[in-house]
Amino acid sequence: INGSMMEGLLIYALPLALFGGVVPTLFFTLGVPHIGGGLATILGAAELPMAALMSSIVLRENVHMLQWLGVAVI
């Protein structure tokens, strides 16, 4: 609405959407027949705790105890 996408933010938004959402999903979908359903389930379950851990370590984001509890519940 405020025009920020057309003033330069779109250059960063499109690659981020492509490499953050489309490519990992595509590669995971293509790889599942090769690794089997059991290992794919384990990898899918391990992704959320690893994302929370890496955001805490690498990006130095605050991951609160309630968020860790949500990861544990899932």
Rank of each mutant, 00 (worst) to 15 (best):
W68N: 05
I11Q: 09
L53F: 13
L43F: 07
L10E: 10
I42E: 02
P33R: 10
G37M: 07
T29N: 04
L10K: 03
A51S: 07
V22I: 15
Q67I: 06
L59K: 14
P15L: 06
M54V: 14
S55M: 15
V63A: 03
L18I: 09
G38Y: 02
V22M: 03
L30T: 11
M65S: 08
I11P: 01
E61W: 11
I11D: 08
I74M: 14
L9S: 12
F19C: 15
F28S: 02
A17I: 13
R60V: 08
L10A: 12
M5A: 05
S56Q: 11
W68Y: 08
L53M: 15
A13L: 14
L10V: 13
L30V: 13
T41K: 14
I42R: 05
L48T: 14
V71G: 03
L30I: 15
L66V: 13
T29P: 00
L30D: 00
N2M: 08
S4C: 12
A72P: 01
L16D: 07
F28I: 02
A45L: 04
L48M: 15
V58Y: 05
S4H: 11
L10S: 12
I42N: 03
N2E: 04
A45K: 05
V32W: 01
S55V: 07
G44V: 06
M6N: 05
F27V: 09
L39F: 08
E7V: 07
L43C: 12
I57T: 14
T41Y: 05
G31D: 01
L16T: 13
L69V: 08
Q67C: 02
A13Q: 15
H64D: 10
G21W: 07
V32E: 02
L14K: 09
S4N: 10
L59I: 09
L9F: 10
L14Q: 04
E61T: 14
Q67N: 01
P33S: 10
F28M: 07
A46T: 15
G36F: 02
E7D: 14
G20E: 12
R60E: 10
I42W: 03
M65L: 13
G21A: 11
L43W: 01
T41P: 00
L9C: 09
T25M: 14
A40P: 00
L48I: 15
L59T: 15
S56F: 01
W68S: 01
M5N: 04
T41E: 04
A52F: 12
A17G: 12
S4Q: 09
T41C: 02
A13R: 15
M54S: 08
E7Y: 06
W68Q: 01
G31Y: 03
V32H: 00
S4F: 07
E47R: 06
L30P: 00
F28G: 00
T29S: 13
V23G: 05
M6T: 08
L14N: 02
V71I: 10
G20C: 04
E7F: 03
A52Q: 00
G36H: 07
F19I: 12
G20Y: 04
I35R: 01
H34L: 14
P24L: 08
W68A: 05
S55Y: 02
M6Q: 13
F27Y: 14
P49T: 07
A45P: 02
I35S: 05
V63D: 02
